[in-house]
Simulated scan of single mutants.
Amino acid sequence: MRLIRRLLVTVAVLLVLLGLAVWGAVRYVAPQEELNLESTPLLLEKKVLEMAIELKPEMTLSSEELNQLIKGYLRQNPRVGSHLLLDGADFNLEGNLLSARVNVTYMGLVQAGATAQYELSWDKPYLRAIPQRLTVRSLDLPASWLEAFEVPLNKELPEWVKISKVAFDDSQIRVGFQAAWPSAGWMLERLRELRD
């Protein structure tokens, strides 16, 4: 009887310790900052029209504009890994590397704050982000836990404009275009919108 009691007490103590360890781990990986996926829609059509007026077949997207574009896309497609859902993010462009501070939920249970790094490439008609690194606090995790994602840049553009090239600078992306002339009615309507 005494042996059974000791065994039960030992099991109970181990369960309490295990519970405390799990609780501590969950608290350790919990997000440290509030992030969301709210974004301001980019008016790329307006930028393209200004580019056409200046007869300059190139447009730049700043790091902040890219942040807004990607957040808008990921708000509609928040699955960033097989068991990871994106709750919030903030992206920063450094050449062709995209650094991200993210808040994710793992398996619908555990919320975590992490940093991720993606390599950007242009794979017509998509801006492709390939995961390179994933870190939760000081713990490096396999980048394979994240999935690559593709942002369709053409979706935001008028149909008469096609992207011909994309170049990555320090904190901006340069987008080159090929354009067929739009109809006169379309151009006049857009010019009126710009004036207003």
Rank of each mutant, 00 (worst) to 15 (best):
F168V: 01
Y126V: 10
L98E: 05
Q172M: 11
L98H: 01
L42W: 00
E45N: 09
A25C: 10
R192D: 12
D196E: 15
K155F: 11
S99D: 12
V11A: 15
W145N: 07
P41R: 11
V104I: 15
L109D: 04
M59C: 05
V102N: 00
Y126F: 15
A114D: 04
R137G: 01
Q178A: 14
T135V: 15
R79A: 09
L194P: 07
N96S: 13
L127I: 08
V26A: 13
L14W: 12
Y28L: 10
D196Y: 06
Q32T: 13
Y73S: 07
R128Y: 06
F168A: 02
K162I: 06
N92A: 10
Y106T: 03
Y118C: 04
M107K: 15
D170K: 15
L69N: 00
R174F: 02
G176Q: 13
K56L: 09
K165W: 09
A100F: 02
P182F: 08
I130N: 10
L127C: 07
E159T: 11
S39L: 05
E94H: 09
G176T: 09
V151E: 03
D196V: 12
V110M: 03
G88Q: 01
H83K: 14
L153R: 04
T60S: 12
T10P: 06
V29A: 06
D123R: 14
F91V: 05
E65P: 04
L18K: 06
L61T: 00
V110A: 05
D170W: 11
L74Q: 01
Q32A: 13
S62Y: 05
L14P: 05
V151Y: 00
E54F: 02
M1C: 10
E156Y: 12
E58Y: 07
L85W: 07
F149A: 11
D169P: 01
